[in-house]
Nucleic acid binder design. Structure first.
Length: 680
RNA sequence: GCUCCCGUGGUGAAAUGGAUAUCACACCAGGCUUCGAACCUGUUGUUGGGGGUUCGAGUCCCUCCGGGAGCACCA
């Protein structure tokens, strides 16, 4: 064991990770699994598969009003093999004949008919009603499945930077990541939620900056200031044109940071001096020097404190918070190890020469312009002396600078190695903004070149979400504006809902002020979440500069709509005051089920498969849209069919349906990270 | 310039290659003495252009047009 402070810290972190891993696994096992085979939809499919002796069938619930049937069967494989003409004329009639044997007025199927490429089945209402029963009987387990049992997945989401503020992009990553974790858990995965903090690259600048300009304010704002000063200096030192645009005031301000200067070259010198000090700070930090290490530890804490406020308000809890620093040492070793095996390559003059020859070839066949060719050649020459992982198509991933320092890419590779070896996951997922798409593609390719994924034993996935964009300009929000939104979003949104509460009248709303606040916060979190997940994650979400307008958009995203529907259903159940399972005794004839009830029954039965689809497609929007549709179905039903009349229950089955809808909405919302208040 | 992503009503979105393209918001017209009106009912209005593959295309392929992002020895 080394005396290096960082090594000591990291071995403690490693121990924590292993302990936490055990408790995550135990918690998963303790939760138990719900068999996917038990569901109405799957039993129905099984019945049809057995009757037809064909495995590859495709079932779809359809609208009885429109098609006069409830289920449409398509057999894609056979359709393709035989061709549509033969399939319709010869195959479908046989299928229909086979299934018709099962149809009877008292059985499950009322009628089977041929409609083009489909076989349509009309179900008996009593059979459909079993579906509703199943929801009520399974309760909170309804929707869960065991399809990915005994497999684990590591999800890396949120991933903020020390000394920077959380910006709008982090909100999306955090929300989408969290909901995806819930979805994976619902289909049986053991899920490891991981937050990767960028706390290493650039820390030399922050430490040196803090020593020079710090005001001991001990928070993330302070660090962000220092970071800004450094960035301004770097930008000016890099461009004489920008330097010449300096106003005297700004020049004076910079002089107070970097020292007096009277020309561009002098400023460059001052900045160079700062940079050199910063680099030696970083070397000290890496070596575990006490002063630098102590300051770095504090800085980390200041930033984490700020991030935790947001996570706390959103109710997000990662299982592991791991810094880039955790992988720093392994990253260096990884490069050295793989240099010796030849998987990491030192870019030499002769390699550069052959690369330039390749570019010449492209120039000759006209794939490159002369200017582009020159630019690429310069890049190739710059790369001499640095180390790379060589990828396909003449791409290369930089892993070690010519001055010997490693880069974030290597720490990411070390991170992948560590996660794979620690968790042995079936999947390793990164949820970030779309700007990193290319980078992750190369990173994963390098992972495979180095065989860190054990011959693709692990599926690596980068999920990219679109930016929040400014409604007016259509452009990505600047991070400063984003930071402001994060600070305000939740509190402002909570206020917005609180005002609505105060406008309410009636017995239902006699809540204490604290209860109203707590419920408003739930509505705020649920609405913000829904706004992020209701659409395909790849798309940009526009955020108005006017916070009030943004909040209005959140409400309209549908989260509040679903929560309202649920609160109303629950209210009816409270008023009825009976357990639906008891009320239903005696209801035997469901011939009178309305169109609404038939539609709702089929909709309810889809939840398990909707969750499964969300999991397989890594897309929370599928689930979110399903819940919106169900809430919509239910609200229409609510208006048309009363459950209670004068406090009595003339149609007990309506209470059962209400109860089933409430259960499905509640289960779905929970996965969507939106907890509905009892009273809205 | 090169690479990637996206074009569906006025707006934001949905739609394993399949039936009459669905939903919300907005607009307009109705509906609370009625299980909770943060709701419901109704009206208007849509697959960027052009080719192709297919029995069948919003979905797949080509091309053009439009919007966004990435192209650091930064993270």
């Amino acid at each position: 064991m080394s005396d290096n402070l960082l090594d000591k810290l990291n071995s403690r972190i490693q121990e924590d990770i292993l302990n936490k891993k055990r408790s995550v696994e135990e918690a998963r096992e303790a939760t138990g699994y719900t068999s996917h085979e038990e569901y109405f939809y799957n039993k129905l499919q099984d019945k049809i598969v057995k009757a037809l002796c064909i495995e590859d069938i495709n079932l779809e619930f359809i609208d009885r009003k429109m098609f006069g049937a409830d289920v449409a069967i398509k057999i894609p494989g056979l359709l393709k093999e035989k061709g549509a003409g033969v399939y319709i004329k010869e195959v479908v009639p046989v299928l229909v004949a086979n299934l018709q044997k099962l149809a009877s007025p008292d059985g499950d199927f009322a009628n089977v008919e041929h409609k083009g490429i489909y076989v349509n089945i009309l179900l008996n209402n009593k059979y459909l009603f079993e579906n509703i029963w199943q929801v009520v009987k399974m309760g909170t387990n309804f929707g869960q499945s065991d399809l990915f049992k005994k497999r684990s997945v590591v999800v890396d989401y949120s991933s903020p930077n020390v000394a920077k503020h959380l910006h709008a992009g982090h909100i999306r990553s955090t929300i989408i990541g969290e909901v995806l974790c819930n979805i994976y858990e619902a289909v049986g995965y053991t899920v490891h939620r991981l937050n990767y903090i960028n706390d290493w690259g650039g820390m030399g600048y922050l430490i040196e900056g803090y020593e020079r300009w710090g005001q001991a304010k001990s928070n993330n704002d302070e660090l962000y200031n220092i970071y800004q000063i450094y960035r301004r200096g770097e930008k000016l030192a890099g461009s004489e044109a920008d330097f010449n645009l300096l106003t005297p005031e700004v020049a004076d301000e910079l002089a107070s940071y970097y020292g007096i200067f009277s020309s561009f070259s002098e400023f460059k010198e001052r900045f160079e001096d700062f940079k050199n000090s910063a680099n030696s700070r970083f070397k000290n930090l890496e070596a575990g020097a006490e002063m630098e290490f102590a300051l770095w530890s504090k800085m980390r804490e200041w930033s984490l404190e700020e991030f935790d406020k947001f996570y706390g308000a959103m109710g997000i809890k990662h299982d592991y918070t791991v810094g880039e620093s955790f992988y720093a040492k392994r990253a260096k070793d990884l490069v050295e190890d793989r240099l010796s095996t030849g998987e990491v390559v030192l870019f030499t003059d002769s390699l550069a020469e052959s690369e330039i020859n390749h570019l010449k070839g492209l120039l000759e066949v006209g794939e490159l312009t002369e200017a582009r060719f020159k630019q690429l050649c310069d890049e190739v020459r710059d790369d001499i002396g640095a180390c790379f992982v060589i990828l396909d198509n003449h791409k290369r991933l930089l892993v070690k600078k010519s001055n010997g320092a490693t880069l974030y890419a290597v720490r990411d590779l070390a991170g992948i190695e560590h996660r794979i070896d620690t968790f042995r996951p079936a999947r390793l997922i990164y949820e970030t903004a779309e700007e990193q798409i290319e980078y992750f593609k190369e990173l994963f390719e390098a992972t495979h070149v180095l065989n860190l994924d054990h011959n693709r034993e692990v599926t690596l996935t980068h999920l990219a979400h679109g930016f929040y964009v400014d409604t007016e300009t259509g452009k990505k929000l600047a991070s400063r504006e984003g930071a402001e939104s994060v600070g305000n979003l939740i509190t402002e949104s909570t206020k917005y809902f609180r005002v609505k509460y105060d406008k309410r009248e009636g017995d239902l709303y006699h809540l204490s002020s604290e209860e109203k606040d707590a419920n408003s916060a739930k509505l705020a979190v649920g609405s913000i979440t829904f706004n992020d997940i209701k659409q395909d994650k790849r798309f940009a979400i526009s955020l108005d500069r006017d916070t009030q307008k943004s909040i209005k958009n959140f409400e309209e995203s549908g989260g509040a709509y679903i929560m309202y529907s649920l609160a109303r259903a629950r209210s009816i159940m409270r008023k009825a005051g009976v357990n639906p399972a008891e009320a239903i005794v005696g209801v035997e004839d469901f011939k009178d089920m309305t169109e609404d009830e038939i539609a709702i029954s089929k909709r309810l039965g889809q939840l398990p498969n909707v969750i499964l689809r969300s999991a397989v497609e890594d897309n929370p929007a599928t689930l979110a849209n399903y819940l919106l549709t169900l809430a919509n179905d239910y609200n229409g039903y609510y208006e048309r069919s009363k459950v209670l009349e004068d406090g009595k229950l003339p149609y007990p089955h309506r209470l059962l349906i209400t109860s089933a809808v409430a259960q499905v909405l509640a289960n779905g919302l929970k996965i969507c990270h939106a907890e509905a208040p009892e009273v809205i």
